[in-house]
Amino acid sequence: MSTAIAENQLADWRQRSLKLESEVKKVIVGQDKAIRLMNIAIFARGHVLLEGGVGVGKTTLLQSITRGIGGAYERIEGTVDLMPNDLVYHTYLGDDGKPKIDEGPLLRAGENLSVFFFNEINRARPQVHALMLRVMAERHLYAFKREYRLPHMVVFADRNQVEKNETFEIPSAARDRFMMEIPIDIPEDRELKKALMFNTKFQHAEKLTQQVESGVLQFDQLNDFSDVIQEHISASDVIEEYALDLWEATQNPAQFGIRMESVDVARLIQAGASPRGMGMLLKAARVHAWLMNRNSLYPEDIHAVFHEVIAHRLAFNAMYENRRTALSRELTAHILDTVAVPSRAMAA
């Protein structure tokens, strides 16, 4: 592909990507950062774990995005009695009184599935997690004596942070499959809160979603274009060194002089970011650079996605694990504050 064609393609897709953001922002207020991060995840082809309370608009957000990118949207609720086969098929009695089998939500749309929303994934059993995580990684499933391909599927899962009863904590290996964990918080702005309370348009989620222009993106072209972005955005040796420093800082923060209140940093980390995690970090950062209309990766691109890509991958020692959400955010903030950008590159 010639450079000029690539540039045009990049500019065209950028315009459409930003249009998707603006369309979603029309119906989802106070979540600009989350929308930008989900946009990045879509173009980086990464799965997303949504973190947030009940009724903050996660479903509406996902439905709006799905409408914007086109394709099919499927959803399943995580429950303690949910079994893996519930994702693959369901059985029922037909009109003729004979048992029937149909594809489950995961297979129903076939290759047209663009967004799969797993609500309260931590209520499902580990067996369900195992199946789901395998599909997320491989994007295909063997069932009904044939292979189902899900090449365009992006999984958005919601983790219930409030309740602990009848929940199963997602193991670190499973969390690592998600590119990002994005917090969906209630907006702090009082006017937005007031609008969410009193503006009747927010009372009908379905009508709200209909306001988003459909097919802004072509879901079945995203995989190919994602490769174009990754190839187009270059990373200098300085940024490579910097990313390497960041990675090492997630593994051994004390070595970089990082200090945290009420935490023995030397004993905090059991496992830092994984190679897959760092790969996803750079992938997401390149998409951010593309959205910022740049051809080169800057530290700001890494910072823009660092918390969301890295924080949920860190494995803490048991004594700190119950505070992981707060500590992981604090640690990633300290890493960015402490690890200097060009220090090691200068010595070269």
Binding site: L336, D337, V339, S343
Partner: peptide
């Protein structure tokens, strides 16, 4: 690069952490 490093280091030192 060294010149840039020196200025960045000065900013970081004054700011108390990395400044972007």
């Amino acid at each position: 690069r060294k010149a840039l490093l020196y200025v960045h280091q000065a900013f970081n030192q004054t700011h108390g952490s990395n400044l972007f």
